[in-house]
Nucleic acid binder design. Structure first.
Lengths: 214, 214
DNA sequence: ACTATACTGTGATTGTCTTCACAGCGTGAA
DNA sequence: TTCACGCTGTGAAGACAATCACAGTATAGT
């Protein structure tokens, strides 16, 4: 098995391609050209072709790519063979929003359980997801094979939460807390920092308004 | 005035530096070395020094950087002179989570108003933010100078929302909807795509578990 | 059968961001 | 006053990703 790793930005684009391809397939299309896929994103046709090349798929000249086939191939790359279990820690406003978000769309990656310190959330079923007290996290992780943990707790609790998840066997974290998590090198952390995103947006709003109108 | 633009990744790091510097200042520190700042993030000391150089600040050898001075300088870069107004569109689960998030921390960038299609949210005060019906958006924007819009509506409504915001004078969007917004070139869009983030995390969880333990 | 066409596949190039490595310098000790 | 130390500032090199540009090719039309 080739253990070639795909570059980070390519993985991100593959997720987006998949979304668009699914929509196209649902709309009755069977084939797509690189420039069509590119137009739906903010990328160049050459970028699309290179990504497709990277994952080892081929289209035909003249007719473009077969949507169903390309979708399958992307799925082979992105979707883990046995499926990944995902747990959510932190059922505050953000945690609930995430549960609603993932419950709404029939996601390929369902959240199997949620945990929180607040006793009143224990036993609740929120947006279709069972909630437990945080104390039950370790035993839950030891019983199920969970590879991904979503950290949606306040900043102060984030590091402790991360450690518990990692000790339980989780290999990657999706971190919404505004802190840099200290994790072993064999654990992947994807940070989603809303405050930083907003500050960045505000900065570019400012610099945009200085530029020429187009 | 030098209109030199800073690279995107630098802006992101500046936001993080600021957060760390504030914490250090609050903890009573007065000076910091590049390697200390670097350790708190996942960056190299050289990266920190280059960023500091870029924004035109200088530390002293031996003593490092003056925290208060560096914070001021970062603020001059990141914070718009007159402050940016921010409005939120979409007061669903995610929108409420965002309001709670920004209300909790005394953010340098407050959300001044929120809008939604649901009539029952109109007139409410959610986490300290006034909510209005979406129909009032245009007139609100024409009365106030708003540079940033947060799009937290369902995917189907996102493009329409974006257009209304841009027509109202907004120059940058923070987009949580899982679609690529079609905007003029002089409008900046920062996408926060939670579904993509989770899929990406799941992918790397998988590839991490194939690698050597450290 | 032949030709024109418009696409894909990809080596080469460009551009951008990160890292290296060392000169320069201010401080504190002798 | 002199020296040694450990930091900063930065030109140069390196790594990486995006783009260009064109050869190769399958199809449709004549």
């Amino acid at each position: 098995m080739k253990n070639v790793e795909f570059p980070d930005p390519t993985i991100e684009r593959l997720c987006c391609y998949r979304r668009i391809l699914s929509a196209l397939l649902a709309a009755g299309h069977a084939r797509v050209y690189s420039h069509e896929l590119a137009a739906a994103q903010r990328v160049t046709p050459a970028q699309v072709r290179r990504d497709v090349m990277l994952i080892g798929y081929s289209g035909s000249p003249v007719k473009g790519y077969d949507i169903a086939g390309l979708l399958d191939r992307i799925g082979e790359i992105l979707d883990p063979p046995g499926g990944v279990g995902v747990v959510l820690v932190g059922v505050g406003y953000l945690g609930r929003a995430l549960l609603a978000y993932f419950a709404g769309r029939k996601s390929p990656i369902p959240v199997v359980a949620a945990f929180d310190v607040a006793p009143e959330t224990s036993g609740q079923l929120i947006h279709g997801c069972h909630c437990y007290h945080i104390d039950e996290l370790s035993s839950f992780l030891s019983r199920r094979s969970i590879l991904v943990g979503i950290v949606a707790v306040p900043a102060e609790a984030a590091q402790k939460t991360a450690r518990e998840l990692i000790d339980g066997g989780v290999r990657a974290l999706l971190n919404f807390a505004p802190v840099q998590l200290d994790v072993p090198q064999n654990v992947y952390v994807e940070n989603v920092d809303i405050a930083v995103s907003l500050e960045k947006t505000a900065f570019f709003a400012q610099s945009m308004s200085l530029e020429k109108e187009d």
